[in-house]
Computed example of a mutant assay.
Amino acid sequence: MILTLNNDIPMPALGFGVFQTPPDVTTDAVLAALQTGYRLIDTAAAYGNEREVGEAIRRSGLPREEVFIETKVWISDYGYDQTLHAFDKSAGKLGVEQIDLFILHQALPSRFDLTLEAYRALETLLADGKVRAIGVSNFMPEHLEALMKQATVLPAVNQVEVHPYFTQPGVQDADADRGILTQAWSPIGGITSYRGTGTSTFDDPTIAAIAQAHAKTPAQVMIRWHLQEGRCAIPKSVRPERIAENFDVFDLELTTDELATLGALDTGTRGGPEPTDITLENFGRPIPEA
Rank of each mutant, 00 (worst) to 15 (best):
V53N: 02
Y38K: 09
D42R: 12
R51S: 12
V53Y: 01
E50H: 13
R58L: 04
Q35H: 13
L34P: 00
I41V: 15
L34E: 04
Y38M: 09
A33V: 05
D24F: 07
V30F: 03
A45H: 08
T36Y: 07
G54V: 07
A33Q: 05
P23C: 10
A56W: 06
R51E: 09
A29K: 06
V25N: 05
I41L: 02
A45Q: 15
V30N: 01
A32N: 14
T36S: 07
E55Y: 03
G54R: 00
D42K: 12
V53S: 01
D24Q: 14
G48W: 12
I57W: 01
E50Q: 14
G54F: 03
E52S: 10
A44T: 12
T27P: 03
Q35E: 15
D28E: 14
Y38G: 09
T21M: 06
A33I: 04
V25F: 04
L34D: 06
L40V: 07
T36N: 07
T21S: 13
A44E: 04
P22E: 14
A29H: 08
Y47F: 15
Y38C: 09
E52F: 00
A33M: 03
G37W: 05
I57V: 11
G37A: 11
G48Q: 10
E55T: 04
G54Y: 01
D42H: 13
V25H: 06
P22V: 10
T26M: 06
A56P: 07
T36W: 06
G48F: 14
G48E: 10
Y47E: 01
A32H: 12
L34V: 05
I41P: 00
T27R: 02
T43Y: 07
R58W: 03
I41Y: 06
A56M: 08
I57L: 02
Q35R: 14
D42P: 09
R39L: 08
G54K: 00
Y38Q: 09
E52V: 00
E52G: 02
V25W: 04
L40H: 15
A44L: 11
E52T: 03
V30M: 03
R58G: 02
Y47G: 06
G54W: 00
V25K: 13
A44Q: 09
T43L: 10
P23V: 11
A56C: 13
T27I: 05
A46C: 14
A45W: 03
R58S: 05
A33E: 02
E55D: 14
E55N: 10
Q35Y: 05
I57E: 04
P23F: 11
A32F: 01
A29G: 11
A29E: 08
T21E: 06
P23K: 15
R58M: 04
T27A: 07
T36C: 13
R39S: 13
R58K: 15
A33C: 03
D24A: 08
G54H: 01
T21D: 04
E52P: 02
T27H: 01
Y47D: 02
A29F: 06
Y47W: 11
D42A: 09
R39N: 10
V25A: 09
A32M: 00
Y38T: 10
P22N: 10
R39K: 15
R58F: 03
R51H: 15
T26S: 05
P23G: 08
L34A: 02
Y38E: 08
D42Q: 11
D42F: 04
G48L: 14
L31D: 02
E55W: 03
L34K: 01
I57P: 00
